[in-house]
Computed example of a mutant assay.
Amino acid sequence: MTGTVARHGAPGPNAEPFAERLSEHLVKGIDGLVESADVIDSTFGTALLTLRARCVVDPRAAAVETWEAAVNAMQLGSALFAVTGVSEGSVECRINRKLRTIPAVGPLSTADAGNWLTAFWLAVVCRDQTRMTQLCEIPLERLRSPEGQYDEYVYHWADVLQTYWLQRPGLVDKLIAAIEASDPAVVRVAPRDLLQGVLYPPINLFYHFVRKDEEGFSPALVEALKLHKAYWTLDEDREADIDGSIALGPLATACLAYDGEIPIEVESEYLPKHLLQRGWLGEFPT
């Protein structure tokens, strides 16, 4: 039986023009990176906003523009960590269908665990295994925020994903450590509603995925989407926030499960169908 989780809200009359304006602004920002990459983190943020705006008007990701937005966001997320990993010279990065030579930036505080998780999820959704590997080879210490911006479980979680993808030993123990460290009784930085509604569900989904729990995965995915929806509809400000248009962590984990031939018996616009089912893969070089 297929579970359904309806997405909150509906695109207004200005949704399409808004997405188009964002796309135009993003292209200008990408073109400017060859001169200076000092604001590559904000360009990445614009790319994420563009992807979410595209998913508002195209919730099934049936249009090539939505796939292009996903690829651009993925490429910029990976580029953020590439240019901040070196302090001299330049880095070759393919972004928006072109191979670009981008000046090195050196360490940026925004090249942290939070943005790493987002960049990794995007690489999973786009099925770019090379970028997944590159991201997983980044040392965990490089992802630590000097301001103590994240709870410790975030670093455990990043370690779990790196261990899984690079097939390192100790995956089960690390996953248990991540689950224990994400207990609301232990977490001190993340607000409880954000933790329970957005941050923890991908960890729970991954637990079902690595156990190859075909019976439990889809119910856990439905629960994750319901929690996502509850978080983003708590008040009017959140409901109007475009960040809630897709559930990126659950989407990426569902992509892993889909590729692992675990049945996905869930339909939701929070999980754009053609991103989940890799319908655009191979449309153009990524």
Score class of each variant (00 low, 15 high):
residue 51 L to P: 04
residue 136 C to M: 09
residue 196 Q to K: 12
residue 160 V to D: 15
residue 188 R to I: 12
residue 140 L to M: 08
residue 221 L to S: 05
residue 250 P to G: 02
residue 141 E to K: 05
residue 225 L to D: 01
residue 192 R to C: 10
residue 10 A to L: 06
residue 255 C to T: 08
residue 161 L to Q: 11
residue 232 W to D: 01
residue 94 R to W: 13
residue 68 E to T: 15
residue 124 V to M: 05
residue 243 D to N: 11
residue 239 E to Q: 10
residue 26 L to G: 01
residue 147 E to F: 10
residue 47 A to K: 08
residue 266 V to Y: 02
residue 103 P to H: 13
residue 18 F to T: 14
residue 226 K to V: 14
residue 158 A to G: 03
residue 59 P to R: 12
residue 15 A to V: 06
residue 194 L to H: 15
residue 71 V to K: 01
residue 237 D to W: 03
residue 53 A to I: 04
residue 70 A to T: 09
residue 186 V to A: 13
residue 88 E to F: 04
residue 248 L to A: 07
residue 79 A to D: 08
residue 211 R to D: 04
residue 252 A to L: 11
residue 41 D to A: 09
residue 75 Q to M: 13
residue 163 T to E: 02
residue 249 G to N: 10
residue 75 Q to C: 14
residue 133 T to M: 05
residue 22 L to E: 10
residue 58 D to Y: 01
residue 192 R to H: 06
residue 101 T to R: 14
residue 221 L to K: 02
residue 73 A to D: 00
residue 277 Q to P: 01
residue 28 K to E: 13
residue 183 D to E: 03
residue 13 P to F: 01
residue 12 G to T: 07
residue 117 L to D: 07
residue 73 A to G: 07
residue 250 P to W: 10
residue 194 L to I: 06
residue 130 T to R: 04
residue 275 L to I: 13
residue 226 K to W: 10
residue 180 E to D: 14
residue 127 R to C: 10
residue 237 D to Y: 07
residue 272 P to T: 07
residue 233 T to Q: 03
residue 164 Y to P: 03
residue 100 R to E: 07
residue 265 E to W: 03
residue 199 L to R: 15
residue 23 S to F: 13
residue 58 D to H: 01
residue 257 A to W: 10
residue 95 I to Y: 15
residue 138 I to S: 00
residue 265 E to L: 08
residue 203 I to L: 13
residue 16 E to Q: 15
residue 233 T to I: 13
residue 185 A to Y: 03
residue 217 F to W: 05
residue 203 I to A: 06
residue 236 E to C: 07
residue 193 D to I: 04
residue 57 V to F: 08
residue 219 P to N: 06
residue 83 V to H: 07
residue 192 R to V: 13
residue 20 E to K: 14
residue 3 G to E: 11
residue 205 L to A: 07
residue 122 L to S: 06
residue 164 Y to L: 15
residue 71 V to I: 03
residue 241 D to I: 02
residue 91 V to W: 04
residue 53 A to P: 08
residue 38 D to Q: 06
residue 249 G to K: 12
residue 169 P to A: 05
residue 177 A to V: 00
residue 185 A to M: 08
residue 262 I to M: 09
residue 4 T to P: 00
residue 15 A to T: 02
residue 252 A to Q: 10
residue 280 W to K: 03
residue 249 G to I: 10
residue 259 D to Y: 02
residue 131 R to F: 13
